[in-house]
Protein backbone atom coordinates (compact mmCIF):
# COMPACT_ATOMS: atom_id res chain seq x y z
CA UNK A 1 0.00 0.00 0.00
CA UNK A 2 3.03 2.17 0.49
CA UNK A 3 1.35 4.23 3.16
CA UNK A 4 3.74 6.59 4.76
CA UNK A 5 4.59 6.07 8.41
CA UNK A 6 7.11 7.69 10.71
CA UNK A 7 10.68 6.85 9.82
CA UNK A 8 11.69 6.25 13.39
CA UNK A 9 9.72 3.01 13.40
CA UNK A 10 12.10 0.15 12.68
CA UNK A 11 11.06 -3.40 12.17
CA UNK A 12 12.71 -6.44 13.66
CA UNK A 13 11.35 -9.47 11.89
CA UNK A 14 10.28 -12.50 13.88
CA UNK A 15 8.42 -15.53 12.62
CA UNK A 16 5.60 -14.88 15.08
CA UNK A 17 5.06 -12.42 17.92
CA UNK A 18 5.06 -15.55 20.05
CA UNK A 19 8.83 -15.53 19.56
CA UNK A 20 9.20 -12.20 21.32
CA UNK A 21 10.01 -12.75 24.93
CA UNK A 22 9.88 -10.43 27.87
CA UNK A 23 13.63 -10.24 27.96
CA UNK A 24 14.00 -9.18 24.36
CA UNK A 25 11.68 -6.27 24.99
CA UNK A 26 13.61 -5.30 28.11
CA UNK A 27 16.89 -5.63 26.25
CA UNK A 28 15.56 -3.30 23.59
CA UNK A 29 14.94 -0.70 26.25
CA UNK A 30 18.40 -1.34 27.63
CA UNK A 31 19.72 -0.62 24.17
CA UNK A 32 18.04 2.72 24.39
CA UNK A 33 14.92 2.48 22.30
CA UNK A 34 12.11 4.79 23.33
CA UNK A 35 9.31 2.38 22.77
CA UNK A 36 8.55 -1.10 21.56
CA UNK A 37 5.46 -2.44 19.95
CA UNK A 38 4.62 -5.83 18.68
CA UNK A 39 2.73 -6.15 15.44
CA UNK A 40 0.96 -9.46 15.60
CA UNK A 41 -1.68 -11.13 13.53
CA UNK A 42 -5.28 -10.43 14.33
CA UNK A 43 -6.47 -12.29 17.37
CA UNK A 44 -7.81 -15.63 16.32
CA UNK A 45 -5.83 -15.50 13.11
CA UNK A 46 -2.37 -16.29 14.39
CA UNK A 47 -0.52 -18.27 11.79
CA UNK A 48 0.87 -20.28 14.69
CA UNK A 49 -2.52 -20.47 16.39
CA UNK A 50 -1.93 -18.46 19.55
CA UNK A 51 1.50 -16.88 19.49
CA UNK A 52 -0.08 -13.44 19.34
CA UNK A 53 -2.19 -14.14 22.41
CA UNK A 54 0.87 -15.19 24.37
CA UNK A 55 2.69 -12.13 23.13
CA UNK A 56 -0.11 -9.93 24.37
CA UNK A 57 0.15 -11.41 27.85
CA UNK A 58 3.88 -10.84 27.85
CA UNK A 59 3.42 -7.25 26.74
CA UNK A 60 1.05 -6.74 29.64
CA UNK A 61 3.67 -8.21 31.97
CA UNK A 62 6.40 -6.01 30.59
CA UNK A 63 4.19 -2.98 31.12
CA UNK A 64 4.25 -3.83 34.83
CA UNK A 65 8.02 -4.25 34.84
CA UNK A 66 8.53 -0.93 33.08
CA UNK A 67 6.28 0.74 35.63
CA UNK A 68 8.38 -0.80 38.39
CA UNK A 69 11.61 0.59 37.02
CA UNK A 70 10.07 3.93 36.28
CA UNK A 71 10.10 3.93 32.48
CA UNK A 72 6.34 3.78 32.19
CA UNK A 73 4.30 0.87 30.92
CA UNK A 74 3.00 2.90 27.99
CA UNK A 75 6.28 2.57 26.18
CA UNK A 76 5.36 -0.93 25.16
CA UNK A 77 2.27 -2.02 23.27
CA UNK A 78 0.78 -4.87 21.35
CA UNK A 79 -1.09 -4.23 18.11
CA UNK A 80 -2.90 -6.69 15.94
CA UNK A 81 -3.28 -6.47 12.21
CA UNK A 82 -3.38 -8.70 9.20
CA UNK A 83 -0.76 -8.83 6.51
CA UNK A 84 -3.12 -7.05 4.17
CA UNK A 85 -3.86 -4.20 6.55
CA UNK A 86 -1.08 -1.88 5.57
CA UNK A 87 -3.24 0.99 6.68
CA UNK A 88 -3.48 -0.35 10.17
CA UNK A 89 0.25 -0.82 10.28
CA UNK A 90 0.78 2.77 9.32
CA UNK A 91 -1.90 3.93 11.71
CA UNK A 92 -0.36 2.08 14.66
CA UNK A 93 3.10 3.30 13.72
CA UNK A 94 1.72 6.82 13.80
CA UNK A 95 -0.16 6.23 17.02
CA UNK A 96 2.80 4.74 18.84
CA UNK A 97 5.13 7.45 17.61
CA UNK A 98 2.76 10.11 18.88
CA UNK A 99 2.49 8.37 22.20
CA UNK A 100 6.24 8.06 22.63
CA UNK A 101 6.73 11.66 21.60
CA UNK A 102 4.46 12.74 24.40
CA UNK A 103 6.34 10.53 26.85
CA UNK A 104 9.63 11.97 25.66
CA UNK A 105 12.83 10.09 25.02
CA UNK A 106 13.60 7.11 27.17
CA UNK A 107 15.59 8.08 30.25
CA UNK A 108 17.71 5.04 29.47
CA UNK A 109 19.91 6.31 26.70
CA UNK A 110 23.31 4.84 26.45
CA UNK A 111 26.24 7.02 25.59
CA UNK A 112 24.20 10.21 25.55
Amino acid sequence: MRLSYPGNVKVVKVPCTGRVDVLLILRAFESGVDGVYLAGCLEGECHFLRGNLRARRRVEYVKGLLEEVGLGGNRVEMFNMSASQGQRFAQFAQEMTERIRLLGPSPVKKGE
Partner: peptide, 17 residues
Protein backbone atom coordinates in the same frame (compact mmCIF):
# COMPACT_ATOMS: atom_id res chain seq x y z
CA UNK B 1 17.84 -18.01 33.95
CA UNK B 2 15.04 -16.08 32.30
CA UNK B 3 13.93 -14.45 35.53
CA UNK B 4 17.53 -13.67 36.40
CA UNK B 5 17.71 -11.93 33.04
CA UNK B 6 14.53 -10.01 33.68
CA UNK B 7 15.58 -8.78 37.11
CA UNK B 8 19.06 -7.94 35.84
CA UNK B 9 17.48 -5.99 33.02
CA UNK B 10 15.22 -4.16 35.43
CA UNK B 11 18.15 -3.22 37.60
CA UNK B 12 20.17 -2.05 34.64
CA UNK B 13 17.27 -0.01 33.28
CA UNK B 14 16.65 1.56 36.65
CA UNK B 15 20.21 2.42 37.45
CA UNK B 16 20.93 3.65 33.95
CA UNK B 17 17.92 5.87 34.22
Amino acid sequence: EREVGVLASELRLYWTK
